[in-house]
């Protein structure tokens, strides 16, 4: 009996039947569970970023206000020279601003990456 090779059309017909279904029956639900988790993560990241920004602005404003008002209290506060107090406060203020600013930038860049 002669050996007949498959024609391209027959091969095409056979390959069309080769669609593979997902081995897990709950594949759709699994994917949607991860998608919903991802959406929730993105939402909470946005909220966290907003809250952080608000507190950062409030803190910066409060710090400026305090360093402006402190010298008006007099020469000493609780036996400490006001100039020393202002200097200590300003050093703390600058350190906090720089470290918190870095955190805020990181948070926003994470948010952008996620988007």
């Amino acid at each position: 009996m002669p050996k007949t090779p498959l024609t391209d059309q027959q091969l095409a017909g056979l390959i069309k039947k080769s669609l593979i279904e997902a081995p897990s029956k709950d594949f759709d639900d699994n994917v949607m569970y991860h998608i919903k988790k991802e959406a929730q993560k993105a939402r909470s990241l946005t909220n966290n970023a907003k809250i952080s920004l608000v507190f950062f602005i409030l803190g910066t404003g409060f710090g400026l206000l305090v360093s402006h008002l402190l010298p008006m209290l007099g020469d000493t506060v609780a036996g400490i020279d006001v100039k020393t107090l202002v200097l200590v406060f300003q050093i703390c203020y600058v350190i906090l601003i720089l470290t918190q600013l870095e955190h805020i930038i990181k948070l926003f860049s994470r948010k952008t990456e996620n988007n």
């Binding site: 669609l19 593979i20 279904e21 997902a22 759709d28 994917v31 949607m32």
Partner: peptide, 10 residues
């Protein structure tokens, strides 16, 4: 997911 899963897995 419903539309593209089978061909994507293939």
């Amino acid at each position: 997911v419903e539309q593209y899963k089978a061909l994507s897995i293939s």
